[in-house]
Design a protein around this nucleic acid. Sequence first.
RNA 1: CUGGGUGUGGCGCAGUUGGUAGCGCGCGACUUUUGGGAAGUCGAGGCCGCUGGUUCAAGUCCAGUCACCCAGACCA
Length: 404
Amino acid sequence: MRLSNTFVKTLREAPKDETARNGALLVRAGYIHKEMAGIYDYLPLGLRVIENIKEIVRQELNKIGCEELLLTALQNPEPWEKTGRFSEKEVDVWFKTELASGGTLGLAPTHEEPITSLMKNYISSYKDLPRYVYQFQTKFRNELRAKSGILRGREFLMKDLYSFHATEEDLDSFYKEVEKAYMKIFEHLSLGDSTLEVFASGGMFSKYSHEFQTILPVGEDTIYYNKNRTVALNKEVLNEETMKDLGVKRDELEETSAAEVGNIFKLKLKYSEPLNLKFVDQDNVQKDVYMGCYGIGISRLMGVIAEKFADDKGLVWPEAVAPFKYYLVGIGEAGTRRAEELYQENQDAILYDDRDVRTGEKFADAELMGIPYRIVISDKSLEAGSLEITDRKTGDTKLVKTLD
RNA sequence: CUGGGUGUGGCGCAGUUGGUAGCGCGCGACUUUUGGGAAGUCGAGGCCGCUGGUUCAAGUCCAGUCACCCAGACCA
């Protein structure tokens, strides 16, 4: 991408309604634009980051046999009424709207009901099981208070996976596979070291669920974990019973704040029963389908990564999610000519700053945008017959002949 | 929702006892400059969140309302 070719501009100062570090930097660097509290536009660079995160998630899920689909955001109240979740009493974050022809629709805060209803069309026999389907979808939640930049929005992007099984044992074994896939995803995102799988409240259908929490000072959750990180739990389940279940003592546990980037649940029969999702087993008996659900906050992850790695100069993207690998600057006539050639040869990997502005401004923007490597081609570097590459993270500069 | 705070060009801010709305950044033109956010000159750009009220006169005073930020509560 040529910087001269995009409408996006960087800002020297953050707008004053954006105080969280992730939001302030993402706005300043031109990745997102705020429409309203908790409601953001994703600009070209921001969209690339989102797509990179999605692709990492997609690849790991596909490896364990998941299929991608896309459900609707607008919700027919019917299935939700069957589970009792269309009422504000049960789910207090509904956005609802009216149909011109009469009747109420909801904007989906999550998708258990519609996916369960949908699968009734396709699951009728044990031969149809198990199935794993997922989507990347915009969720709408009418939060009383949106905050922390893109960490907690009213409209946000989530990956939600739903699994369907003939038996609880099969659900259990797939659940374990998802746990492993999730850790791989967080490793690819450079969050492996700082993300813990923690025990959390399981709601009414199981004792515990699991959350994936990334250690982060501005995170909204408080978690506890032991020294070698083999056991971690959310504050909401920090009690005698849980500690006994997990075999830890209070004084072994350390406290930290963290951001929830994923949550996995064994739903069991919670939705299949009221929505009547059944199958015929080998013994010709009708049985309820066991279900699990598994979420990852895609847009929140972008905020967590931005927040976690940023320094005083701006964003610092891990290579796997960065919108571009290289930020290219040509200096002088010969340097600019060579830069243009290099860009032509590697357009997918390069953000080419071909603007007619001073070099200092280009350097400052390269750092603010957090592109992993900055390439400078100048008379100086050409004399050495090479390109000058600076690592955004360490600031180290080296000369190389060609890009790898 | 409770408490506190803020709304003035794209962004950050100033605006005194009510009297023709200003500064910095950014934007346009020209000149000089050109490896760390350049300098000068000239210029464009604003129903002062919205509605109503007081007044000869409201960015400024009064009432209402909306939005946004922070802390807390909430987070199926």
